[in-house]
């Protein structure tokens, strides 16, 4: 795989004064995001953490163009976001979206097929390479039902990356996995990211995961979401997911994130 050059780096993302309101069935309106401004550097790995339901996923949807903002602007690579999903953006959801009736290789190739790129020899090489990096070469012709949860998520990862996106949106993609499966797939993710360097917006409620993966962690409050903290993670790259947990830098970054969130819940915590 050709190493990334400057022109293949991810897109920068800019959110300014973004506000998003939802109307519930009962007729009330709920402010999901309230005046959020963010400048995301090209090719950086940014993790958004916050309590469940605080609007982080909604932010991702706004960047993707799946939801429309009620105030403020969202631009990707300088272009404002429209209703159509901007080409170059990949989105990996929390739930399993593999097509149960297609094999692993067909699932990965889906995005290529929609773009009309299937017959390219280059495409086959891409799929080959992706499967190799995540150690799934052997199950190329298997169906999702034959694979474990962790393997399925790896396939989904490949499917998201086969189009070599400039922006990768990920919404709690690994929250359903157990600790060690999660660690290994995080490592696979970082390997792939290193090669392609898309801009990553990764949403999670797992603080440990946030610090493990990110260049930059942004902590959100409860709904309506505002930014509570914004810290740079000074752990070395390329990162070893297993090794970082021993680092004191990891611990201090983790604690800072924890403290930022703690006061959101202090009043509700049961006394020991």
């Amino acid at each position: 795989m050709t190493p990334p050059t400057a022109t293949m780096l991810g897109f920068p993302i800019l959110l300014s004064g973004v506000r998003k309101i939802f109307n519930t069935h009962a007729g009330n309106s709920v402010v999901a995001i309230d005046d959020v401004s963010l400048e995301i550097e090209a090719g950086s790995f940014v993790v958004l953490v916050g309590p469940s339901g605080c609007g982080k996923s909604t932010l991702l949807n706004c960047v993707a163009g799946l939801d429309r903002v009620d105030a403020g602007r969202v631009t990707v690579n300088g272009q404002p976001v429209t209703d159509k999903v901007t080409p170059g953006i990949s989105y990996l959801f929390q739930q399993d979206t593999l097509f149960p009736w297609y094999t692993v290789e067909k699932n990965i190739a889906l995005g290529l097929r929609y773009a009309g790129l299937m017959d390219d020899a280059e495409s086959q090489k891409r799929i080959d390479h992706l499967l190799e990096v995540v150690d799934l070469k052997g199950v190329r012709k298997a169906y999702p039902s034959e694979l474990s949860g962790g393997m399925r998520r790896r396939v989904a990862l490949c499917a998201a990356l086969v189009m070599q996106p400039r922006v990768l949106l990920m919404d709690e993609p690994f929250s359903a996995l157990d600790t060690f499966t999660k660690a290994s797939i995080q490592q696979y993710l970082l390997k792939l990211w290193d090669e392609l360097r898309p801009t990553v917006l990764f949403v999670t409620h797992d603080l440990e995961e946030a610090v493990t993966l990110a260049d930059r962690v942004i902590v959100f409050s409860r709904r309506p979401a505002v930014i509570k903290d914004d810290l740079k993670v000074e752990l070395p790259r390329p990162r070893n997911v297993y090794a970082v947990k021993d680092s004191p830098v990891f611990l201090s970054d983790y604690q800072r994130t924890w403290r930022a969130l703690r006061d959101e819940f202090e009043s509700e915590m049961p006394s020991p």
């Binding site: 999903v85 989105y91 959801f93 979206t97 889906l110």
Partner: peptide, 12 residues
């Protein structure tokens, strides 16, 4: 519905 949404996201 998840799969339908996925198709949209993938550009279909």
């Amino acid at each position: 519905p998840l799969l339908l949404r996925n198709v949209v996201v993938l550009g279909g």
